[in-house]
Design a protein around this nucleic acid. Sequence first.
DNA 1: TTACATGCTATTCAATTCATAGCATTTTAT
DNA 2: ATAAAATGCTATGAATTGAATAGCATGTAA
Lengths: 124, 124
Amino acid sequence: MKKIAYVKSADFPHPGTPVRGSRSGAPIMALFDLLGRRWAMGVLWTLRENEPSTFRQLQERCETISPAVLNKRLGELRAAQFVTRGEGGYITTALGRELYDQLVPLGLWSKDWAKALDEMSEMP
Amino acid sequence: MKKIAYVKSADFPHPGTPVRGSRSGAPIMALFDLLGRRWAMGVLWTLRENEPSTFRQLQERCETISPAVLNKRLGELRAAQFVTRGEGGYITTALGRELYDQLVPLGLWSKDWAKALDEMSEMP
DNA sequence: TTACATGCTATTCAATTCATAGCATTTTAT
DNA sequence: ATAAAATGCTATGAATTGAATAGCATGTAA
């Protein structure tokens, strides 16, 4: 019997089951678990800004990521339905783009944060 | 000579210096580095919803976090100016509340994500 | 002065990530 | 057809990070 491609993998943090950092499986905690892994947000961000990307292109664009970790993150992001494969390499799914859209304001705000830290460090 | 309290620590990812996952030090990458550590977002989230919290209260509310990690995350969040100490324990700063506010939509959206995954898993 | 709460640190062990090499398969060039 | 290059990884070992648990130093209250 063949595996069906769209079943949820038990191997990535997903809502409804206990995840690292929460026994409740609350969606936000599952999301925090998934995104709170090194490079998870960075990969999604980088991919969305360079779609499609092959594995090696992503690797280069992420500068320092190791192929083992990239492969693992891609697997998790695919299991979570944020990333899939398409023509010319990896691409984001509709869900992945929604998530990215949630991160964009964070990207803008991070500049304010940088400014605030900077001003603070200049204090006499 | 005494250390001044508000100087940036070199020991946490901050904009303008290379961080894990990016040599550029782009603010968003520094933020991703900081938040992409186990429990970082969870601690901020939990604290914001239970202000103020003592160390032990936070520990309980986070359910599974170990004191060493909580202490480390608190140190980073404080260095990043997201958390500070106040009457009755740890509290968020104005910056920390801004960041939390950026995460709130993510929390709402995570429910849609959960629903989408769920529907997908019910497919024939 | 004993008891308890608080904010950690110490220690040991497990899991994760880094850095690098390299392999199997497909595509491209000659 | 063959060789070279690109692609998508896997393997390995070292370094870093996190989990689990114990316990200590300080402060407060009884």
